[in-house]
Structures are given as C-alpha cells and as structure tokens.
Computed example of a mutant assay.
Amino acid sequence: MTSPRVVLIGPPGSGKSTVGRLLAGLLGTGFRDTDADVEAAAGKAVADIFVEDGEERFRELEADAVRGALAGHGGVLALGGGAVLDPRTQELLAGHPVAYLRVGLADAVARVGLGSARPLLVLNPRSRLKALMEERRPVYERLATLTVETGGRTPDEVAAEIAKGLPA
C-alpha cells in the first residue's frame, strides 16, 4: 500500500494547493488535491456540488476521495479545508506525516478573495472564514505532526520548511 510523503491541512487560503505543488517538485514526487478528486468523481465543481447536491453529499464524496488518496498516493496530498472534520478521516490520518499550514485571517482573506466561489464563504465571507478558522484550528493542531506558519512568507519558503521537517 502506498502512503503519502506528507498530507497538507489548513483552512481555505492557507496555500495547500500552491505549496503542495512546490513541495512535490522539491521532493521529486506527485501532487494530489482531494478537491480535484471530488470534482472529477462528481463531474462538476465543488461550488456546484454544494448548490446542487448539498454539503452533506460533498462531505461524502470528500471522505471517499481522502480515503482513496491516503491508501494510494505516494506523493504530496492536499486535503480540502473541512476534510479533517470527519472523524473517520481523523483516524485515517494517524501515522501519516501531516503538515498544518497556519494562516492569519488577513492573509487568508487576501488569498481567498471575498468574491470567491468558495461555497461556505458566500454570506459575509470575512466573518464566515474567521468562524471556520477558529472552529477548525484545534482539529488542525491536534492532527499536525508539523505546523508551519505561512504569514509573511512565500510559498517557496513554506514548501522548503515542510521539506526540511519531514522524516527521511
């Protein structure tokens, strides 16, 4: 069974996809994003899944995508921001190197953009993002084997710190 070199977790705007691609390049391995896996499985964008099928259906697809990726991807794996809320996903992450990309609200808002197509941030996006970050922070911190601050740093700097912090 193949296992990821590292799993990236963090809120929307923390840089999981951007840093993940850079990190995969540094490690000479592949990159996989479970949101992209969900979109491929559903045949539509995450935002459309939320609108047409509901958050519950999205979370089911997401849990399946995470389970498959953890069992079959040997590179860098980025999870959607809310994937870690599923208790089964939390159990599956045990024993994997997990890097939490910690980001401040101002940086997250700047990266996500307040007019973005992120379904959980539609109404009052700044306030909603703040609430999501506060609600999920303890889960991210508990699951992380490595925490990396992203504020005021380039994605290359963040990727390099993660690479240095990984087990050989």
Rank of each mutant, 00 (worst) to 15 (best):
L26R: 15
L70V: 03
R118Q: 02
L146S: 06
V76K: 09
L92Y: 10
A99Q: 09
R136G: 11
R137K: 09
E91N: 04
E39F: 09
G13P: 12
L120V: 13
L23W: 04
A110V: 01
G72H: 02
D33I: 00
R102V: 07
V6F: 02
G72P: 00
E56K: 03
E149G: 08
V46R: 04
Y140W: 06
L120I: 06
G80T: 04
V112L: 03
L143R: 12
G30L: 04
Y100V: 00
M1I: 10
L8D: 14
V122S: 10
P87M: 07
G151P: 01
G13E: 06
E141D: 07
V84L: 01
G25Q: 07
G68R: 15
G20Y: 03
Y140M: 00
R153E: 13
V109A: 08
G113E: 12
L105W: 06
L166N: 11
A42R: 09
R137H: 12
H96L: 13
V7L: 09
T29Y: 09
S116M: 02
G104P: 00
E134W: 06
A36Q: 13
E135D: 14
E39S: 10
A47R: 04
A71S: 02
L61H: 06
Y100L: 00
L77I: 06
L27T: 02
A47P: 01
Y140N: 00
G113S: 13
D33S: 07
V76L: 05
L22H: 05
P97S: 15
V109K: 11
